[in-house]
Amino acid sequence: MTALEVRNIQKNYGKTEVLKDISFSLEKGQVLAIIGSSGSGKTTLLRCLNFLETLQEGSILVNGKTIFDAASASKLTDEQIRENRLHFGLVFQSFNLFPQYNVLQNVTLAPTLLKLGTAQEIQEKAKKLIAQVGLSERIQAYPCQLSGGQQQRVAIARALALNPDILCFDEPTSALDPELTGEVLKVIKGLKSKDSTMIVVTHEMEFARHVADKVIFMADGIIEEMGTPEQVFGNPQKEKTKAFLQKSLEEF
Protein backbone atom coordinates (compact mmCIF):
# COMPACT_ATOMS: atom_id res chain seq x y z
CA MET A 1 0.00 0.00 0.00
CA THR A 2 1.29 3.44 -0.89
CA ALA A 3 1.69 5.50 2.26
CA LEU A 4 2.95 8.65 0.63
CA GLU A 5 2.88 10.01 -2.83
CA VAL A 6 4.47 13.33 -3.72
CA ARG A 7 3.58 14.68 -7.16
CA ASN A 8 5.51 17.36 -8.98
CA ILE A 9 6.13 19.62 -6.04
CA GLN A 10 7.91 22.93 -6.44
CA LYS A 11 9.10 25.45 -3.93
CA ASN A 12 10.81 28.76 -4.49
CA TYR A 13 11.84 31.62 -2.29
CA GLY A 14 11.40 34.57 -4.58
CA LYS A 15 13.45 33.75 -7.65
CA THR A 16 15.45 30.99 -6.01
CA GLU A 17 14.05 27.60 -6.90
CA VAL A 18 14.72 25.24 -4.02
CA LEU A 19 12.62 22.27 -5.11
CA LYS A 20 12.09 21.75 -8.81
CA ASP A 21 9.47 19.22 -9.76
CA ILE A 22 9.98 16.51 -7.15
CA SER A 23 7.95 13.31 -7.39
CA PHE A 24 8.31 10.08 -5.47
CA SER A 25 6.25 7.58 -3.57
CA LEU A 26 6.77 5.46 -0.53
CA GLU A 27 5.19 2.16 0.51
CA LYS A 28 3.91 1.60 3.99
CA GLY A 29 6.63 0.18 6.23
CA GLN A 30 9.44 1.51 4.08
CA VAL A 31 12.33 3.65 5.20
CA LEU A 32 13.42 6.31 2.75
CA ALA A 33 16.84 7.90 3.15
CA ILE A 34 17.43 11.23 1.46
CA ILE A 35 21.06 12.09 0.89
CA GLY A 36 22.80 14.94 -0.87
CA SER A 37 25.01 17.89 -0.15
CA SER A 38 23.97 20.94 1.85
CA GLY A 39 21.66 23.25 -0.04
CA SER A 40 20.30 20.50 -2.25
CA GLY A 41 16.77 20.97 -0.85
CA LYS A 42 16.55 17.92 1.45
CA THR A 43 15.54 19.83 4.54
CA THR A 44 13.15 22.05 2.62
CA LEU A 45 11.45 18.94 1.28
CA LEU A 46 10.84 17.66 4.82
CA ARG A 47 9.65 21.07 5.96
CA CYS A 48 7.17 21.19 3.09
CA LEU A 49 5.84 17.74 3.98
CA ASN A 50 5.29 18.98 7.52
CA PHE A 51 3.66 22.20 6.31
CA LEU A 52 6.26 24.44 7.86
CA GLU A 53 6.70 25.81 4.34
CA THR A 54 4.06 26.20 1.68
CA LEU A 55 4.57 24.61 -1.72
CA GLN A 56 3.90 26.62 -4.85
CA GLU A 57 3.14 23.63 -7.05
CA GLY A 58 2.25 19.99 -6.74
CA SER A 59 0.26 17.74 -4.47
CA ILE A 60 0.76 15.38 -1.56
CA LEU A 61 -1.22 12.18 -1.04
CA VAL A 62 -1.22 10.16 2.17
CA ASN A 63 -2.70 6.65 2.10
CA GLY A 64 -4.19 7.43 -1.31
CA LYS A 65 -5.97 10.56 -0.15
CA THR A 66 -4.97 14.01 -1.38
CA ILE A 67 -4.19 16.11 1.65
CA PHE A 68 -2.55 18.96 -0.18
CA ASP A 69 -2.90 20.38 -3.64
CA ALA A 70 -1.16 23.64 -4.45
CA ALA A 71 -4.01 24.59 -6.80
CA SER A 72 -6.42 24.91 -3.88
CA ALA A 73 -3.91 25.58 -1.12
CA SER A 74 -5.02 29.15 -0.46
CA LYS A 75 -8.39 27.83 0.69
CA LEU A 76 -6.84 25.75 3.46
CA THR A 77 -7.82 26.92 6.91
CA ASP A 78 -5.43 26.89 9.87
CA GLU A 79 -7.49 24.03 11.23
CA GLN A 80 -7.00 21.93 8.07
CA ILE A 81 -3.28 22.63 7.98
CA ARG A 82 -3.04 21.42 11.58
CA GLU A 83 -4.92 18.25 10.66
CA ASN A 84 -2.64 17.69 7.68
CA ARG A 85 0.40 18.08 9.88
CA LEU A 86 -0.76 15.20 12.06
CA HIS A 87 -0.16 12.76 9.19
CA PHE A 88 3.51 13.56 9.60
CA GLY A 89 5.90 13.72 12.48
CA LEU A 90 9.17 15.61 12.41
CA VAL A 91 12.31 15.12 14.46
CA PHE A 92 14.53 18.19 14.19
CA GLN A 93 18.27 18.41 13.86
CA SER A 94 18.36 20.62 16.98
CA PHE A 95 15.84 18.47 18.95
CA ASN A 96 13.70 21.47 19.98
CA LEU A 97 12.51 19.90 23.20
CA PHE A 98 10.46 22.20 25.40
CA PRO A 99 12.95 23.23 28.11
CA GLN A 100 10.39 23.96 30.83
CA TYR A 101 8.90 20.46 30.68
CA ASN A 102 10.48 17.23 31.86
CA VAL A 103 10.84 14.16 29.64
CA LEU A 104 7.38 12.79 30.40
CA GLN A 105 5.70 16.19 29.97
CA ASN A 106 7.44 16.76 26.66
CA VAL A 107 5.91 13.54 25.36
CA THR A 108 2.44 14.03 26.86
CA LEU A 109 1.99 17.75 26.09
CA ALA A 110 0.62 17.49 22.54
CA PRO A 111 -1.60 14.40 23.06
CA THR A 112 -3.05 16.10 26.14
CA LEU A 113 -3.75 19.39 24.38
CA LEU A 114 -5.19 17.56 21.38
CA LYS A 115 -7.31 15.44 23.75
CA LEU A 116 -6.19 12.13 22.25
CA GLY A 117 -7.28 10.12 25.26
CA THR A 118 -7.66 10.19 29.01
CA ALA A 119 -4.79 11.51 31.10
CA GLN A 120 -4.00 7.96 32.20
CA GLU A 121 -3.97 6.52 28.68
CA ILE A 122 -1.72 9.30 27.48
CA GLN A 123 0.68 8.80 30.41
CA GLU A 124 0.86 5.05 29.90
CA LYS A 125 1.52 5.38 26.22
CA ALA A 126 4.16 8.04 26.84
CA LYS A 127 5.93 5.83 29.36
CA LYS A 128 5.94 2.98 26.89
CA LEU A 129 7.47 5.18 24.21
CA ILE A 130 10.06 6.55 26.63
CA ALA A 131 10.98 2.98 27.52
CA GLN A 132 11.24 2.19 23.82
CA VAL A 133 13.86 4.92 23.38
CA GLY A 134 15.61 3.67 26.51
CA LEU A 135 15.04 6.61 28.85
CA SER A 136 12.73 5.22 31.52
CA GLU A 137 15.21 6.18 34.19
CA ARG A 138 15.30 9.83 33.13
CA ILE A 139 11.55 10.33 32.93
CA GLN A 140 11.56 13.23 35.42
CA ALA A 141 14.68 14.89 34.01
CA TYR A 142 14.57 18.26 32.26
CA PRO A 143 16.13 18.65 28.81
CA CYS A 144 19.06 20.69 30.19
CA GLN A 145 20.02 17.67 32.29
CA LEU A 146 20.21 15.33 29.29
CA SER A 147 22.93 14.71 26.73
CA GLY A 148 22.24 15.60 23.11
CA GLY A 149 21.65 11.96 22.22
CA GLN A 150 19.18 11.55 25.06
CA GLN A 151 17.39 14.74 24.07
CA GLN A 152 17.05 13.50 20.52
CA ARG A 153 15.63 10.18 21.75
CA VAL A 154 13.03 12.09 23.77
CA ALA A 155 12.20 14.09 20.65
CA ILE A 156 11.61 10.80 18.81
CA ALA A 157 9.27 9.58 21.57
CA ARG A 158 7.47 12.93 21.46
CA ALA A 159 6.89 12.60 17.71
CA LEU A 160 5.74 8.97 18.04
CA ALA A 161 3.17 9.90 20.69
CA LEU A 162 0.93 11.31 17.96
CA ASN A 163 1.03 8.15 15.81
CA PRO A 164 2.08 9.87 12.61
CA ASP A 165 1.58 7.99 9.34
CA ILE A 166 5.02 9.07 8.25
CA LEU A 167 7.81 10.02 10.61
CA CYS A 168 10.44 12.38 9.24
CA PHE A 169 13.94 12.93 10.59
CA ASP A 170 15.85 16.05 9.60
CA GLU A 171 19.53 15.20 10.01
CA PRO A 172 18.82 13.73 13.43
CA THR A 173 22.45 13.18 14.35
CA SER A 174 24.13 16.21 12.79
CA ALA A 175 24.12 18.22 16.03
CA LEU A 176 25.53 15.34 18.07
CA ASP A 177 29.01 14.41 19.14
CA PRO A 178 30.18 11.37 17.15
CA GLU A 179 30.01 9.05 20.15
CA LEU A 180 26.31 9.91 20.64
CA THR A 181 25.32 9.36 17.02
CA GLY A 182 25.09 5.60 17.38
CA GLU A 183 22.50 5.56 20.17
CA VAL A 184 20.12 7.71 18.13
CA LEU A 185 20.58 5.76 14.91
CA LYS A 186 20.02 2.55 16.82
CA VAL A 187 16.69 3.84 18.11
CA ILE A 188 15.64 4.87 14.61
CA LYS A 189 16.65 1.48 13.25
CA GLY A 190 14.66 -0.15 16.05
CA LEU A 191 11.51 1.68 14.95
CA LYS A 192 11.58 -0.02 11.58
CA SER A 193 8.56 -2.28 11.25
CA LYS A 194 5.86 -3.10 8.76
CA ASP A 195 3.68 -0.35 10.23
CA SER A 196 6.07 2.54 10.41
CA THR A 197 6.96 4.59 7.40
CA MET A 198 9.95 6.85 7.78
CA ILE A 199 11.89 9.46 5.86
CA VAL A 200 15.39 10.20 7.09
CA VAL A 201 17.47 13.06 5.76
CA THR A 202 20.97 12.09 6.69
CA HIS A 203 24.68 12.41 6.14
CA GLU A 204 25.27 8.98 7.71
CA MET A 205 25.91 6.95 4.58
CA GLU A 206 26.40 3.66 6.38
CA PHE A 207 23.06 4.12 8.10
CA ALA A 208 21.32 4.97 4.82
CA ARG A 209 22.87 1.95 3.13
CA HIS A 210 21.92 -0.54 5.80
CA VAL A 211 18.60 0.68 7.14
CA ALA A 212 16.86 2.29 4.18
CA ASP A 213 14.68 0.43 1.69
CA LYS A 214 14.88 3.29 -0.73
CA VAL A 215 17.43 6.04 -1.26
CA ILE A 216 17.02 9.39 -2.94
CA PHE A 217 20.03 11.44 -3.91
CA MET A 218 19.13 15.09 -4.27
CA ALA A 219 21.16 17.78 -5.97
CA ASP A 220 20.15 21.38 -6.74
CA GLY A 221 16.49 20.85 -5.94
CA ILE A 222 15.88 17.77 -8.06
CA ILE A 223 15.98 14.05 -7.50
CA GLU A 224 19.17 13.14 -9.25
CA GLU A 225 18.96 9.45 -8.53
CA MET A 226 16.51 7.16 -6.78
CA GLY A 227 16.55 3.46 -6.07
CA THR A 228 17.38 0.75 -3.60
CA PRO A 229 20.51 1.23 -1.49
CA GLU A 230 22.22 -1.42 -3.61
CA GLN A 231 21.49 0.54 -6.78
CA VAL A 232 22.33 4.01 -5.50
CA PHE A 233 25.37 3.09 -3.42
CA GLY A 234 26.54 0.04 -5.35
CA ASN A 235 25.94 1.11 -8.89
CA PRO A 236 25.25 4.85 -9.21
CA GLN A 237 24.35 5.94 -12.73
CA LYS A 238 24.78 9.71 -12.57
CA GLU A 239 28.03 11.62 -12.43
CA LYS A 240 26.83 13.83 -9.57
CA THR A 241 25.89 10.82 -7.49
CA LYS A 242 29.24 9.19 -8.08
CA ALA A 243 31.10 12.38 -7.15
CA PHE A 244 29.03 12.88 -4.00
CA LEU A 245 29.41 9.30 -2.84
CA GLN A 246 33.10 9.30 -3.50
CA LYS A 247 33.53 12.40 -1.33
CA SER A 248 31.23 11.10 1.39
CA LEU A 249 32.83 7.71 1.62
CA GLU A 250 36.36 8.97 1.28
CA GLU A 251 38.64 7.37 3.80
CA PHE A 252 41.40 9.34 5.43
Binding site: F51, L52, D78, N96, L109, A110, L162
Partner: peptide, 19 residues
Protein backbone atom coordinates in the same frame (compact mmCIF):
# COMPACT_ATOMS: atom_id res chain seq x y z
CA UNK B 1 12.41 25.92 16.61
CA UNK B 2 10.19 25.96 19.70
CA UNK B 3 7.30 27.31 17.70
CA UNK B 4 7.97 24.87 14.86
CA UNK B 5 8.10 21.95 17.27
CA UNK B 6 4.66 23.01 18.50
CA UNK B 7 3.40 23.34 14.94
CA UNK B 8 4.48 19.88 13.82
CA UNK B 9 2.77 18.49 16.91
CA UNK B 10 -0.47 19.95 15.58
CA UNK B 11 -0.86 22.65 18.23
CA UNK B 12 -2.74 25.87 17.55
CA UNK B 13 -1.13 29.30 17.69
CA UNK B 14 -2.64 30.11 21.08
CA UNK B 15 -1.64 26.71 22.50
CA UNK B 16 1.90 27.31 21.29
CA UNK B 17 1.97 30.75 22.88
CA UNK B 18 0.45 29.87 26.24
CA UNK B 19 1.92 26.39 26.71
Amino acid sequence: GQQEAGQVLGLSKSQIFFK
